[in-house]
């Protein structure tokens, strides 16, 4: 199942991943499993989703680049609010995440 494909459940140094509460978020309407306490961008990676937005001008696909809230490449529309840094915003059950699709002509 895609849910665990990219999750590191066992780690030689960090040990076994503690089971967080599973929640469900929606990416462009499609349900994605996530774990409470993780940022949206991480949950998307875990589900194998790498595209966080299309760039405003050329509508090129972009993905998280820094994961610490600086690059703004992971900005998505979250519960209607645009430009939310998904690498620093934690998932909430039922959250609706949309992929921005560029806006410049």
């Amino acid at each position: 199942m895609a849910f665990n494909n990219f999750r590191i459940l066992q780690h030689p140094v960090l040990g076994e991943k503690k089971n967080g509460k599973e929640v469900r978020i929606f990416l462009d309407g499609l349900p994605i499993h996530a774990v409470e306490g993780e940022p949206i961008a991480a949950a998307l990676y875990a589900a194998g989703v790498r595209i966080t937005r299309l760039s405003p001008h050329k509508k090129e696909p972009r993905g998280a680049f820094c994961m610490i809230g600086r690059c703004t490449e992971c900005c998505m529309i979250v519960d209607g609010e645009p430009n939310v840094r998904t690498c620093r915003t934690m998932v909430r059950d039922g959250m609706r995440v949309e992929t921005p699709r560029g806006w410049m002509e």
Binding site: C71, T72, N83
Partner: peptide, 8 residues
């Protein structure tokens, strides 16, 4: 001059 404030 973009959103990332030129970080990169």
């Amino acid at each position: 001059l973009g959103y990332c404030q030129g970080r990169f």
